[in-house]
Write a protein that binds this DNA or RNA. Structure first.
Lengths: 183, 183
DNA sequence: CTGCCGATATATCGATCTGATATATAGTCC
DNA sequence: GGACTATATATCAGATCGATATATCGGCAG
């Protein structure tokens, strides 16, 4: 049994509740897991075929008029595979933050310009925070609790990060300012 | 002028202070930028060649005995290119957290097992936190301030995340426990 | 001084993933 | 009838990871 990629489990998890097309999967990902695990069409469609070959999902034609469409639903084997994965300790933890990278090298810039970097990071995080809040507002009380916990985690994290940026801005400004501490 | 990848700028930034070999660059990355921007040999060596062709770094042979070794240093054009990049607003913000992904789908597990997921996340974050603290302890007062700010940010973030996991653990346990609120 | 191990140094490769683009059809609005 | 957006699938170049291969060097245990 070859190892599935985490993205395969995203798909398994999302078709578990209801049958979905690749397009719908992408749309759901973009409004939920994207913030801690993204997926693109280039992964989703090949992976759906792969999962279907492995018998973990079943696809069925469900065209809308003349437009072909295949929806996938999970099989018993797929459910089993998903649960087995959930019980394994997580392996992948990655972060790619171009803003932090720039701040790291800010020494190469004239003093004072580092502030622009933390301001840009802060603005971006606040933007994501607002997106997450609007997603939270959309979701009624219908869902199971775990996606909600993760969503609130995202909201708290982006807020924390924005606040950190604010603190750093002050710190950098204080360090750059002429030492004018009066006696 | 084709666009350089952020990893190219990591290399530019790291050879700016002192000439380094690809191997040394990888070692420095693993102890500094790895936590917000990783790089592998598979990127570093080709990118060094690419940067050398573009005239942004210069490589010179500097063998140790019979072992060939090429160290690279930044050129004036490279410095210019680095500063220009630092002034651009950051574009890439990614996070891949398999633990959050598992928590998101924890509904597929019998109640109670979700706690194991947040515990694993917390343990991992505390481990990274300890690594970052030991890196901080190693660095004397020599460095420029920005890498220090970023490093402290990493320490604060991993601590925040670990604390969040702890809070979620309590919350999940409270929700899973039989409602035993006495009158 | 020999053999082994770990560090230094470079290179490569399959698999994964992104971001963009291409191709259709369906529905809506003017 | 035309413009526009949403639905739906597919593909591809380039970035990246993680692992592995190859080789030399230095140190140290026996």
């Amino acid at each position: 049994m070859e190892q599935l990629s985490p993205t395969a489990y995203v798909i398994l998890g999302l078709v578990r509740n209801e049958p979905r097309s690749g397009y719908e999967i992408k749309a759901v990902v973009d409004n939920s897991t994207r913030f801690f695990w993204a997926a693109s069409y280039g992964q989703i469609y090949p992976e759906l075929k792969h999962l279907a070959e492995a018998g973990l999902v079943i696809g069925s034609d469900s065209p809308t008029g003349g437009r072909r469409r295949t929806v996938y639903e999970i099989t018993a084997d797929g459910e089993e595979e998903l649960r087995a994965w959930l019980r394994q300790p997580p392996h992948t933890f990655e972060m790619r933050e171009e803003g932090l990278l720039k701040l790291f090298f800010a020494d190469a810039l004239p003093p004072g310009e580092a502030v622009a970097i933390v301001r840009a990071m802060r603005a971006h995080r606040l933007e994501v925070n607002a997106q997450l809040r609007s997603i939270e507002a959309l979701k009624g009380g219908i869902d199971d609790p775990y996606p909600k916990i993760v969503l609130r985690g995202g909201i708290e994290f982006t807020q924390w990060f924005a606040d950190w940026c604010e603190r750093m801005e002050e710190e950098i400004l204080a360090a750059a300012a002429p030492e004018e501490r009066s006696s």
